[in-house]
Design a protein around this nucleic acid. Structure first.
Length: 471
RNA sequence: GGCGACGUGGUGAAGUGGCUUAACACGGAGGUCUGCAAAACCUCUAUUCACCGGUUCGAAUCCGGUCGUCGCCUCCA
């Protein structure tokens, strides 16, 4: 093991992660714009950050994770106006929904979820500095733009030559007056009935990019370790963040830029603008459990495109079921014999393989391979009756340990309600009486309620069904 | 038009110079076990890594070309 290595978008190489403060990693993730429900493509990028955070913590590092919430932007303004409510009402509603979906997918709650509207002062302070330093200028309508020509490094992150940028023919009315069409707004002057803040730099509202610069620096400092987002944010969003942040502070902004590839659906990018989307609720309604969805979203390397087709979701459900089955088997197994002398080595090797894979730029596929190698090995030992009852606890402990990173196993305290418990007890009794017809009837009844029951020499065992019910 | 990523079995996907005639998962075929079922385990399911050429003792892995897919090039994770 030679530490955690990550692929930095800016330099294009894989480098060891060296936190600015030893033992403490500061991470900023571009979060949701709360004007509607986030789709599972959005969640892929959030879950990839979650996986990173969980792995770093599993490695014993302290992590401060900040994810912004954009609660003021054109779409929110438009949506609120069409409903005749304030932007705060709309934002609050969709933020709640975002958090609920995030919980469903077992995303770690970020340490801070700063909102743009709560950081106007930080943004205007940053803009003032940019004005003072000559990196930004005002236009007649009260807007303020960042001057790209004042920042020679512009385009480095996206590997774009500013002179080659194909500038759109459409120029928004409010953007007339820019010195250069490529310049971007850090502050938008007041317009009609749009929300506006009275600030030291004048009335108006913030541009999108400045939000992330201000909020990340407010909560993590002028320089921090990792910034994550989807590849579509590389340009212009993150490019602009770097320019305005470094121009304002004179310091390096971010140590490592991490970008995850798009989730695709039917061969093309999942995006709200194309309507080619599926929400967490849509997938769950189709019978895929949240745990299986999480598995599908994190099982493929984050820089690899991923198609959320039915086949991959079904495969994920199958893989999760294999883990559930092992847990159920461990719980049901009883063997008084001596401990398996080989087990400690097997467990240690699995943990090492798992951790090493994730250290290597978060290679989740390889980490899962290590986990499933362990699953087969343990199943073999269970079948051979080589393990003791105490050994099953050791295996379970390791699975739970690895699951601190994966978060795909059933809850440790998952219990059936009383009615189902009774059906299980009845079935056990029927079997004891060799009442096979009754036993089969009860098994069917349980299956209809989403519980799979299986018989072993240690008695019956149960687990949640793969498809359908996922309480 | 510019820039970038990628192309591995029935499917998803790891591997990026010899340990790999290719991990792991899903699926399929056969077998063991079992009241039945399921699960699990065992065997089989790519002599081959888009195609062509080259470098090398040796390539899925490096180089060149061709074809194809996807993404970015102003607010989309």
């Amino acid at each position: 093991m030679d530490g955690i290595r990550l692929m930095d978008t800016l330099t294009g190489d894989v480098r060891p992660l060296v936190p600015l403060e030893p033992g403490h990693v500061r991470i900023y993730s571009c979060g949701p714009t709360v004007y509607g429900p986030a789709h599972i493509g959005n969640f892929r990028s959030f879950l990839f950050a979650d996986l990173l955070v969980r792995h770093l913590r599993w490695r014993g590092l302290r992590v401060t994770w900040v994810m912004n919430v954009t609660d003021i932007d054109d779409k929110i303004i438009r949506g609120a106006a069409s409903e005749g409510v304030g932007i705060d009402v709309l934002a609050e509603r969709w933020l709640e929904r975002f958090l609920a979906d995030a919980d469903t997918l077992r995303m770690t709650r970020p340490d801070v979820l700063p909102r743009a509207t709560g950081h106007i002062a930080e943004m205007t302070a940053l803009i003032e500095t940019l004005l003072e330093r000559g990196n930004a200028y005002r236009t007649p309508d009260g807007s303020i733009f960042f001057r790209i020509s004042s920042w020679p490094a512009y385009g480095r992150l996206a590997r774009l030559d500013p002179d080659q940028l194909r500038v759109g023919e459409r120029v928004e009315a409010d953007e007339y007056g820019k010195d250069d069409v490529r310049d971007f707004a850090v502050w938008k002057g007041p317009r009609g009935s749009e929300p506006s803040w009275d600030t030291a730099i004048g009335p108006g509202r913030p541009g999108w990019h400045i939000e992330c610069s201000a909020m990340s620096m407010a909560h993590l400092g002028q320089s921090f370790d990792i910034h994550t987002g989807g590849v579509d944010l590389v340009f212009p969003h993150h490019e602009d963040e770097i320019a305005q942040s470094e121009a304002a502070t004179g310091r390096s902004f971010v140590g490592t830029w991490l970008h995850c590839a798009h989730l695709q659906m039917a061969g093309s990018k999942m995006a709200k603008s194309t309507g080619n989307i599926a929400g967490v609720d849509d997938v769950v309604a189709s019978g895929i459990s949240p745990r299986a969805l999480r598995y599908a979203l994190i099982a493929v390397h984050y820089r690899q495109g991923l198609d959320a087709g039915d086949a991959s979701l079904q495969a994920a459900a199958g893989a999760v079921d294999r883990l559930d089955t092992l847990l159920a088997a461990l719980a049901a197994y009883e063997q008084a014999g001596p401990d398996d002398p080989d087990l400690p080595g097997v467990l240690q090797a699995a943990r090492a393989g798992f951790g090493d894979a994730l250290d290597d730029d978060l290679n989740a596929s390889a980490a899962l391979a290590s986990l499933f190698d362990l699953v087969r090995d343990v199943n073999r030992r269970l079948a051979a009756r080589a393990l003791s009852s105490a050994d099953t606890g050791r295996v379970r402990d390791l699975l739970r340990d690895l699951d601190r990173v994966l978060a795909i196993l059933p809850d440790a305290d998952d219990r059936l309600d009383a009615d189902l418990e009774r059906l299980l007890a009845d079935r056990s009794a029927a079997r004891a009486a060799h009442d096979w017809a009754g036993s089969d009837r009860l098994r069917d009844a349980l299956a209809r309620q989403g519980i799979t029951v299986e018989d072993t020499r240690d008695g019956q065992r149960w687990r949640r069904a793969k498809i359908g019910d996922h309480a």
